[in-house]
Amino acid sequence: MSLSGLESLIKDCKRNPTVRLLRTESLTDETLSLPEREPRTHRSDIVEGSVLASHDVPKGGRSSFTHFLDGIERRRVLLYSDCIPVVWGYVAACVRRRSEDQLMCPVQALTCSEHGLYFPFELLSPTSFKRYEGLRVHDVRPLKGSETVSDNTFDVQRQAFNAVSNRRAEQEADLLQSWGAFSSDRDWLLVDGALSSSFRKGAQERVVGVIKSHLARYFEGDDYRLILNLKVGQRTSVFRPRVPNLEPVYSWYLRLHDDTGRDPTFGLVRLEACAEVGTLSMADEISAWLMAERSPLSLPDARWDRMIYPIYDCEQYLKALAPSRAHIEALVS
């Protein structure tokens, strides 16, 4: 990906005394700076049996996942124009295929990346930023519940960062749709993250989402304790989360690694698949595939207990393609 547009912008900014170019801002990515979100509790309906129960996943077997989808983002406040922060964001997503010799390889048609500027058009005219080649300009909308964008620089920055994340989610959703047309009946796709995201247009067959964070929870009390007390190789009953405005999915929890002596969420993931009867019959099988995916480990990634290696591989692949921190720092310095 060419950064010539960004380079031209930075050159112009260096000559423009009204623009404050940030030379010391560090580049952050999702893993280093997760958006601050509050834990939420949603309701759910158990669809496998009448009560939430733990089930032993069949041991052995091989995974049937053939494709894996993940995305990354990088962002930094690039400059202040008229005291409004302008965020530079890079987003990329890909689907990687596992070949018959068990090596991960790219699917060129299912790899995308872009970079752009994120700021509220309401506060800063986009006109002067639109002439740079390859540099897209994104509007930052007001926070939910407010009609206008705050000119508080911290709010603007946070909203811009969220906008970068949303753009990434859009890209992933687009790839997911493309994969549907691209795949064959024997292909299975494992997606990093929830299928029920607002950007994803519903769950598809042969697609499974794996959610590593547990900020959103769907059970309380004994059910919640049952989830946290799952043994390695156990899953919960399948349930249907009731999240407003999202396409329905079937979901269940699975313990990938032994959590003895560790946090109760260690090795605990939540899976999502399309809300169909077939999913119920395949919950054990899909869980077994996930168990098989534990090897190799995605160490040294800090989330290795919940991140399976092919997803880690996607992330490394995208990071390798992304502009390096050194490059960006060199441009602005």
């Binding site: 091989r62 995974s63 596992r98 010799d101 068990q102 090596l103 991960m104 098989a292 995916e293 534990r294 090897s295 190799p296 480990l297 160490l299 040294p300 290696y309 092919p310 591989d313 490394q316």
Partner: peptide
């Protein structure tokens, strides 16, 4: 490969060298 420590491979294969991992490291 991207293996940072031999221990990671050992843990990943649960101490059984005959286990075939689902994915080969590049």
């Amino acid at each position: 490969t991207d293996l940072a420590s031999p221990l990671y491979d050992y843990i990943g294969l649960e101490g059984d060298p005959t286990t075939q991992p689902m994915t080969q490291r590049p």
